[in-house]
Amino acid sequence: MTTRDRLLGLTVVVLWGLNFLAIRAGLDHFPPFFFAAVRFLLIAIPVVLFVPRPQVPTTWLLLYGTGFGVGQFTFLFWAMHVGMPTGLASLVLQSSAPFTVVLGAILLRERLRPVQVGGLLVAMSGMALIGWDRSQHAALLPVVLTLLAGLSWALGNLGNRKAASDQPMRLMLWMCVIPPLPMLALSFAVEGPSSGWDALTSSLHGNGPLALAGLAYIVILGTIAGSGLWTALLSRYPAGTVAPLSLLVPVVGIGAAWLVLHEEPSAVSLIGGAVVIAGAAATQMSGKARQGPSPHVRPPARVGV
């Protein structure tokens, strides 16, 4: 990887790490499910109007959009709404990497290498340590919801992988078309028919402008710019070269939450997080498996939050 592309990769890491601050700003004003719906709706409208649909089976596009879009952000925003610390959320969400490996082995019959099995066990021990620590200091529910977000992201990765599109950026953009209607329906049923719209109409007052700035950041910098740069890097380098950079996202997320929100994660949670990242990195180590996906199947691109 050239120095220029390495700097582009680190730029994406910073954009995605700061994305969690933007999410927190939005959730301080908007109901979580409505906020998730609007986040995708702002992308979906121009995509439907101006971006040609990728030539992939609808089944896999729906799985990608339901897992990555609906499932991940339902659980992540819910978790942060009920008390998941911003920095810790960026860390626990990395569970998507080992979850992807497990689901690939179970559902796609991909053979696991010994180093991947070891990485899974390490990552699981780190997640267990974080869960134990949070249960001693606060409710365990936010951690469980964030793990479910990671599991949903992994299901979306399988949809991405099975779609095997040679136009990954177009696929990512069309994935954003799937979540708005289910998320708006969920918001209507759970948060009430008017709560989201009331928050939107009052967004010029109080903490509303900061929430709108957070929404703009998520859409423009976190999703379009960050995912665009990431997709460009994946088109030029092997996934095993690019993907490990995403493991730096929690470093930025935790550091930003500490500096801006004054969150101070416990030493046990930080140790557990380091263990999760080490295990996730091991599951992504390159190497030839005796049996795996066909050579023409492109590995799933991580497209951030």
Rank of each mutant, 00 (worst) to 15 (best):
H81V: 00
S202G: 12
A199N: 08
Q284C: 01
A216Y: 10
P98L: 11
S227F: 01
G304T: 09
A139F: 03
T11V: 03
P265I: 03
I224E: 04
I218A: 08
I220N: 00
G69C: 05
S125A: 15
T86C: 12
I224K: 02
G83E: 10
Q167P: 00
L261Y: 12
L61N: 03
V276K: 01
F30C: 05
V143N: 00
V251Q: 01
G83F: 11
G69S: 08
A89P: 02
G126Q: 07
P193R: 13
G71P: 10
V38K: 04
T11A: 15
W258A: 14
A267P: 00
Q72K: 03
D166W: 03
T283I: 04
A199Y: 05
S235E: 14
A216T: 12
H296F: 10
G192E: 10
D28R: 10
G87N: 08
P238K: 05
G156R: 01
L261H: 11
L158C: 03
L140P: 01
G71R: 11
L91I: 10
A163Q: 07
G304C: 06
L248E: 05
L103G: 02
L245W: 14
G156Y: 01
V82A: 06
S203F: 11
L27V: 06
W153G: 02
T283K: 00
S269D: 12
S165E: 09
L145D: 08
T3E: 06
A232K: 11
H205A: 14
L27T: 02
A139V: 00
F34H: 07
S246Q: 14
L204T: 12
R6Y: 09
M285V: 12
L248T: 07
I271T: 15
L141I: 12
G287Q: 12
G87C: 07
L63I: 15
V275F: 00
G287W: 13
I224P: 07
V101L: 09
V48A: 15
T241F: 05
S235R: 14
V303A: 05
P193Q: 12
A154H: 08
P265L: 11
I254H: 07
G192L: 10
L129E: 01
K162M: 15
H29D: 04
T86V: 13
G126K: 03
G150L: 05
E191G: 08
G272F: 04
D198R: 15
L155E: 00
V219Q: 07
G206N: 10
G9E: 02
N160K: 02
W132Y: 15
V56H: 05
A281G: 14
R134F: 13
L171R: 07
M84E: 04
D198E: 14
M169S: 04
L15R: 02
L210S: 13
V56T: 15
G126C: 06
G131A: 13
W132M: 05
T66S: 15
I220F: 15
A89G: 09
P31K: 09
A239D: 05
G196P: 09
G71T: 10
I220G: 06
V275T: 14
Y217Q: 04
L270K: 07
L210K: 13
S152H: 05
R53T: 03
L8H: 12
A164T: 07
S286R: 14
E264Q: 13
L140W: 14
G150Y: 02
A37R: 03
Q284K: 09
G159D: 04
P114C: 00
V122D: 01
L41A: 15
T74R: 02
A149T: 04
R4F: 12
